[in-house]
């Protein structure tokens, strides 16, 4: 290749990386704004959408806005319950899909895939139509039902990916060493799948905590955190919501990075 071509190639190579990183930066701009605004003191001005003065007050007086922390609590409660149920049901289903053969498997596959490919507004309004027609009163439990429903598919897909990627030689070896089927499962299979299950649970919780469209249709008088933000957006958002946003972001980043560090340490321990 000519020198000129090589230069062109070098630019081409690094251009792609630079543009890719630019896109990544773009994805983080709004998060930076959320973090910045959590330190914004807008008590002196009515302009809600500009940075005025630096303050710690939003962090120290986190729960000042009426009903906000109650809404956060409600979201956490629903998120936790929905995550536990969705993770259990989804993990069982993932094992069924990968490890067992049964009639209606491809139909199940379609039904598991569809909720991820349906617009939320349609799923939400369908559920609402169902609840209205059977006279189920809207509130905590209808939100819970909806959240388990849309988290389930994501759990199945995540756990399935982990399960199909599993090195089956390990299980074979356990069986060769006279482990019973249940010993093999609990000593070998389950620990290997566990990271996938935990990842699925984390994903479920953040999906549930963050959901607005389906929740808003099926919430009745219950207020979750996203509903609080949406309601407040009509009047003017209290700056404290950004504190909650920042905390959520930091916690999940810590969990993900913690998991990654743990993985690397394990990999190194195995290599040593």
């Amino acid at each position: 290749m000519s020198g000129f071509g090589r230069i062109k190639r070098w630019i081409g190579d690094h251009l792609v990386m630079a543009l890719g990183l630019l896109v990544l930066v773009y994805m983080f701009v709004p998060i930076a704004v959320v973090i910045l605004m959590s330190f914004n003191d807008n008590s002196k001005s009515r302009n809600l959408y500009a940075f005025q003065n630096f303050t710690w007050n939003n962090w120290t007086g986190m729960c000042k806005p009426d009903g906000m922390c109650a809404a956060v609590g409600k979201s956490a409660e629903i998120g936790l319950l929905a995550t536990i149920v969705a993770t259990i049901l989804g993990t069982l289903a993932a094992f069924a899909m990968v490890r067992h053969d049964f009639k209606g498997k491809s139909a199940s596959n379609v039904i598991i895939f569809l909720p991820m490919a349906s617009p939320e507004i349609v799923m939400g309004s369908s559920l609402l139509a169902l609840f209205l027609s059977v006279g189920f009163s809207l509130g905590f439990w209808t939100i819970f039902i909806a959240h388990v429903m849309f988290c389930l598919s994501f759990v199945v897909v995540t756990v399935k990916a982990r399960l199909t990627g599993l090195d089956s030689n390990l299980e074979q070896a356990a069986m060769d060493l006279y482990a019973t089927e249940s010993q093999t499962f609990w000593r070998v299979t389950f620990p290997l799948v566990l990271p996938g299950i935990l990842g699925a649970a984390l994903l479920s919780f953040s999906l549930s905590f963050d959901d607005f469209i389906i929740t808003n249709l099926n919430a009745g008088q219950t207020t979750t955190f996203p509903m609080f933000v949406y309601g407040a957006a009509q009047r003017g958002v209290p700056m404290q919501v950004n504190v909650i946003g920042t905390i959520m972001f930091l916690i999940s980043i810590a969990i993900v990075l913690g998991g990654e560090v743990n993985n690397r340490r394990k990999a190194r321990a195995l290599a040593a």
Binding site: M27, F28, P30, V34, D210, Y230
Partner: peptide, 10 residues
């Protein structure tokens, strides 16, 4: 990572 900050806040 952006998924971990509320969709509405973003």
């Amino acid at each position: 990572a952006p998924f971990f900050t509320s969709f509405l806040l973003r």
